[in-house]
C-alpha cells in the first residue's frame, strides 16, 4: 500500500489531474457506450414489434 491517507491517494503524487483525467474519461466512455447500447437494444425491439403489428393489420 502506497497511500498514507485518502487525500494522498487522490493527489497521486501531484499527478492527480492527469491520472484521474485519464481514468475518469475512460469510465465515462464505457458508461456512455453501455447506456447507448441498452437504449438502442430496447428501441430495436420496440420498433420491430411495431413494424410486425403493422404488417399483421
Amino acid at each position: 500500500m502506497e497511500w498514507a491517507s485518502w487525500s494522498d491517494f487522490w493527489s497521486m503524487g501531484g499527478y492527480g489531474l492527469y491520472v484521474w483525467g485519464s481514468y475518469g474519461v475512460t469510465a465515462l466512455c464505457i458508461l456512455i457506450e453501455i447506456l447507448l447500447l441498452r437504449r438502442s437494444a430496447g428501441d430495436t425491439r420496440r420498433r420491430l414489434k411495431r413494424m410486425q403489428q403493422w404488417e399483421e393489420q
Binding site: 500500500m1 502506497e2 497511500w3 497521486m12 501531484g14 499527478y15 492527469y18 491520472v19 485519464s22 475512460t26
Partner: peptide, 23 residues
C-alpha cells in the same frame, strides 16, 4: 492502485499505463 508500487522515475503518473496499454 493499491498493490503496484510507485515508479521511481514517473512517480504515480505511470498508473495511467493500466488503462492506456490495454486500450
Amino acid at each position: 492502485f493499491f498493490v503496484a508500487p510507485t515508479d521511481f522515475q514517473q512517480s504515480e503518473a505511470y498508473r495511467i499505463i493500466f488503462i492506456h496499454v490495454p486500450a
